[in-house]
Design a protein around this nucleic acid. Structure first.
Lengths: 119, 119
DNA sequence: TGGTATAGTATGAAAAAAGGTACTGTAAAG
DNA sequence: CTTTACAGTACCTTTTTTCATACTATACCA
C-alpha cells in the first residue's frame, strides 16, 4: 500500500477494523455468542444485506470471523469470532475508551462555549 | 453517524485516525518535533498537497494537531502534535503492534501453504 | 529578468465505498 | 394457496474519497 517502511502497520491493523460497519459487527460478535446472518441484520438495522455479506466475507478471509453453514432448509449460517479475532478485543476496547473520552471532551468544550457566550 | 447506542464510540475514535494518510502523518508528528508543511510532504512522498492540507485541517479541528503560522514571506507554518493528540499515542502503538503481528501471521500461513504444497 | 521556495487553493476527473432494489430456492405456517 | 423466514446474489446508482494539474502571492538569489 505504501513503501514507507516502519509506519504502514497502522494501516494493516486498521484494514481489519475499518469500514463503516466493521466495528459494530465485531462489537456484537465479541460478545462471544455466535450470531446468525439475520440476527446480525437485526442488530445493525441500517446495514444492507449486501454490505453485511461483504464485510462478513472480508472478516472471514482474515480469519477474524468464522462462518459455519448448517445444511438445512431454510438455511442456517452462524458467524462467530475466532480465537485470533479475539486478539482484536483489547485493541477495540482501547479505541472505544478513547472514543468515549473524545466525545466527552467535545461535549465539555461545547458546554464551555455556550457558557462564555451567554455571559 | 449511527444511532445504535454503546457501540459507535469505535467509530468516533477511528474517525480521528482513519484516512489513507492520517496514521502516517500522526506517526511523524508523534516523534515530537514540529514539522513544516513541506517537511511533511517530503516525509510522505506520495501524498498530494491537497490531501495533506485536508488531513491537517481535520486533525487541527479535532485539536489533535496544532497549526502555527509565522507571518513571514515566504510563508512558514509549523504543525505539531497537541498534548491531547499525544493521548492517541498508546492507541496507535497498539494498532501498530497488532498490525505487525497480523503481517507476521500472514507470512507464516503463506509459508506453511507453500511447504505443504511442495510436499 | 528569470527561477526557486513557501503554503497553500481551485477545478475537474477518476476510483473506491456504500447503498437500493429486485431476485433466488426451499420449507413450514396459516 | 399465499406468506414468511432464511441467507444470500445480481445489477445498478449514489456518495465519498482520492488524484492530477494548474494556479496564487511574495521574497530572495543569481
Amino acid at each position: 500500500m505504501q513503501k514507507n517502511p516502519g509506519q504502514c502497520q497502522f494501516v494493516v491493523a486498521m484494514d481489519s477494523i475499518v469500514g463503516k460497519w466493521k466495528p459494530t459487527i465485531l462489537y456484537h460478535l465479541l460478545q462471544g455468542k455466535p450470531l446468525r446472518f439475520n440476527e446480525l441484520r437485526r442488530l445493525l438495522p441500517d446495514i444492507t444485506q449486501r454490505m453485511l455479506t461483504l464485510y462478513l466475507r472480508e472478516l472471514e478471509e482474515e480469519e477474524i470471523v468464522k462462518r459455519v453453514v448448517y445444511p438445512q432448509i431454510p438455511p442456517k449460517v452462524e458467524y462467530s469470532i475466532t480465537e485470533y479475532g479475539m486478539s482484536l478485543s483489547p485493541v477495540l476496547e482501547m479505541l472505544h475508551r478513547w472514543g468515549v473520552a473524545h466525545i466527552e471532551r467535545k461535549r465539555l468544550k461545547e458546554a464551555e462555549n455556550e457558557r462564555t457566550k451567554t455571559d
